[in-house]
Amino acid sequence: MNPAPELAPQLKQLRLSGIFDSLEARNRQAIEAKLAYTDFLALLITDEVARREQKKFSTRLRRAQFRTTKTLDQFDFERLPQLNRALVHDLATGRYLQEKAPVLIVGPCGTGKSHLAQALGHCAVRQGVDVVFTTCASLTQSLSAARATGSYERKLAMLARVPLLIIDDFGLKPLRAPADEDLHDLIAERYEQAATIVTSNLDFPEWDQAFPGNRLLASASLDRLRHNAYCLVLDGQSYRAPKQLGPTTSPAPQKTSKSASA
């Protein structure tokens, strides 16, 4: 007997789609295995919880706005033998999120900084943490646009509350006023209140170059970013390097017959 026709309206009204979707299969399983009523109910509740968790995960993943689906399993550690692999896996557990500590990732172009940052963000999403991924340029542009529409304070407060903010390509372009002040304000608001991941092509001593017009602002911003930060240095060849063409072989010279050479 299929109980779905009788229960369908009530389950939909209660928004228990997970139970509705698996009810027929679970009912058949319960009959065949002669499950107790409580065991049958436990299966249905487990299905509903799994559906809701998957829905939350999908929503968080969409809101994170990752460029691509980059996970830690896809990261090529063998290409970067000097990378502190133990630290990377420790960060993947999310301990830095509870510590509200920054994670700073530096290295040349194409070494996997963005991949690693997004992979850590993906781990955080799986742990139920809200994440926002953005480039430094897009971040400052969005704050500038918010100022133009009179919503700067609301935008700043929203970004300050995000449990994990990932800022990609810091220092790729110099920060001019008021972008340098906007970034400083955001870093100051998040300081010891939420975790931030920052990637950059610049070495750590060069980060003040991102604030060419205000050394004092640079010092105040970077001092907060570096305090209790976990640092990862990616040093290796770019994975974007063009593929090398295989060796070309010239055609073998044709032999000249004696009759032709005579």
Results as ranks from 00 to 15, higher is better:
Gly18Ile: 08
Ile19Thr: 08
Arg147Asp: 13
Pro108Ile: 02
Asp168Arg: 06
Leu143Thr: 06
Pro212Gly: 08
Arg226Pro: 01
Thr199Gln: 00
Phe20Lys: 07
Leu186Pro: 00
Arg85Pro: 06
Asp73Cys: 02
His122Cys: 10
Gly213Asp: 13
Gln10Ala: 13
Leu120Arg: 11
Thr69Lys: 11
Leu72Ala: 09
Glu153Ala: 15
Ala229Ser: 13
Val233Leu: 10
Ala86Met: 03
Gln29Val: 03
Ile31Met: 07
Lys100Gly: 02
Ala119Ile: 11
Ser144His: 12
Arg51His: 07
Ala124Trp: 05
Arg240Cys: 04
Leu232His: 02
Leu156Asp: 00
His115Gln: 03
Phe204Asp: 00
Pro9Val: 02
Ser221Ile: 02
Cys109Lys: 08
Ala177Pro: 08
Arg60Ala: 09
Pro3His: 10
Ala177Lys: 15
Phe66Ala: 12
Val129Gly: 05
Thr111Lys: 05
Asn214Ser: 11
Leu234Val: 08
Leu41Ser: 09
Phe66Trp: 05
Gln237Met: 12
Leu11Thr: 09
Ala50Arg: 14
Cys136Arg: 01
Ala194Glu: 05
Thr93Arg: 12
Leu14Val: 04
Ser114Thr: 15
Asp235Glu: 10
Leu35Trp: 09
Leu41His: 02
Glu6Thr: 13
Pro81Met: 05
Ser221Arg: 01
Thr38Asn: 11
Ala64Leu: 07
Glu99Tyr: 08
Ser259Val: 12
Lys255Glu: 10
Leu35Glu: 11
Ser142Phe: 01
Gly246Pro: 12
Leu120Val: 08
Arg15Met: 09
Lys34Gln: 14
Lys34Arg: 15
Ala262Lys: 13
Ser142Pro: 03
Pro5Thr: 10
Ala160Met: 01
Ala42Gln: 10
Lys173Thr: 11
Glu153Gln: 14
Pro205Tyr: 01
Arg67Phe: 09
Trp207Thr: 03
Gly128Ala: 04
Thr69Met: 11
Ala4Tyr: 04
Leu43Ser: 10
Thr59Lys: 13
Thr135Arg: 06
Asp47Gln: 13
Arg67Gln: 13
Leu91Gly: 05
Ser261Gly: 02
Gly107Arg: 08
Lys113Ser: 04
Leu61Glu: 00
Gly246Ile: 01
Leu14Asn: 06
Ser259Asp: 14
Pro81Thr: 05
Ala260Ser: 13
Ala33Ile: 03
Gly246Asp: 09
Asp185Ala: 15
Ile105Ser: 01
Pro205Met: 03
Phe211Thr: 07
Pro242Glu: 05
Pro178Tyr: 02
